[in-house]
């Protein structure tokens, strides 16, 4: 359903992504782990063209975007089939919690306001922030902001949800509530690709774990294999360091 072929990204002389090939089935939950600076976040950012890859083909359903020929309309279509959860939340600062969720539904998906409002109300209840509907991001804790960041992505019903280290910027006290919410999203078999440093969480929710290093996929497999019986020395040494 989702296929990535030869995805390559360079920043100057440095190759950050070195020809990534990856297939993700509908409903599959894939976790990416690996040392810092190995291109995990860049991979996610290239998948919706927040960073433009130099080469590679991305296919989501019937949409094919080739970096060599990508037009603005195709990039827009790609972004409308994905949702993105940012490490630093990146909520719209001029919108309330409720409006952060309805904004794209109304502006991008052209849903009627009543429908968007109902959807936002349901999501706010689900993420436990119904009482914060009218609050602006600046008045919310990091954990609350990130739950809304996830709620905003949930509302889009995208074919692929991309989550870029969603708990890395959080104070330890807020990590638990955000992990709980992501667990619930994962339980619904939302197709997701998540970059995370939370190994226990990855083991719990992922159907497949990918270990990346130096802009390449070194090893991938079910969590039990990657965490308990890694085949590659580099995976093994990374896991020893983070444990």
């Amino acid at each position: 359903m989702i296929s990535i072929r030869g995805l390559t990204k360079r920043f100057g002389a440095t190759t950050v992504l070195d020809g990534i090939d990856l297939d993700i089935a509908a409903g599959e939950r894939v976790a990416i782990i690996g040392p810092s600076g190995t291109g995990k976040s860049t991979l996610l950012r290239c998948l919706n063209y927040l960073d433009r890859p130099e080469a590679g083909v991305i296919r989501i359903g019937d949409l094919t975007v080739d970096a060599a020929t990508a037009k603005p309309a195709q990039i827009l279509a790609l972004r409308r089939r994905t949702s993105f959860v940012f490490q630093n939340y990146s909520l719209f600062a001029n919108k309330t919690a409720h409006q952060n969720i309805t904004e794209a539904l109304i502006t991008v998906q052209r849903k009627p306001r009543a429908e968007a409002d109902a959807r936002a109300d349901a999501i706010l209840r689900e993420i436990g922030l119904a009482d914060k509907a009218g609050a602006y991001p600046a008045a919310l804790s990091g954990g609350q902001q990130q739950r809304i960041g996830i709620g905003r992505a949930m509302a889009l019903d995208a074919a692929l949800m991309l989550l870029d280290e969603p708990t890395s910027a959080l104070d330890p006290e807020w990590v638990g509530e955000v992990l709980d919410l992501m667990r619930r999203v994962a339980e619904r078999r939302q197709t997701m690709l998540i970059v995370t440093h939370e190994m226990q969480f990855a083991r719990e929710i992922a159907d497949r774990v990918i270990f990346m290093e130096g802009g390449r996929i070194v090893e991938q497999g079910p969590p039990s294999q990657i965490f308990d019986a890694p085949q590659d020395k580099r995976t093994e040494s990374f896991l020893r360091r983070v444990r």
Binding site: R79, L91, F92
Partner: peptide, 22 residues
């Protein structure tokens, strides 16, 4: 802040929508 541009792009806004709305 750059995060505001990226968040708007990520939800699929056009350049015009991003400017007007965010």
């Amino acid at each position: 802040d750059r995060s505001q541009w990226e968040a708007s792009q990520a939800v699929g806004m056009t350049q015009g929508q991003l400017m007007r709305r965010i």
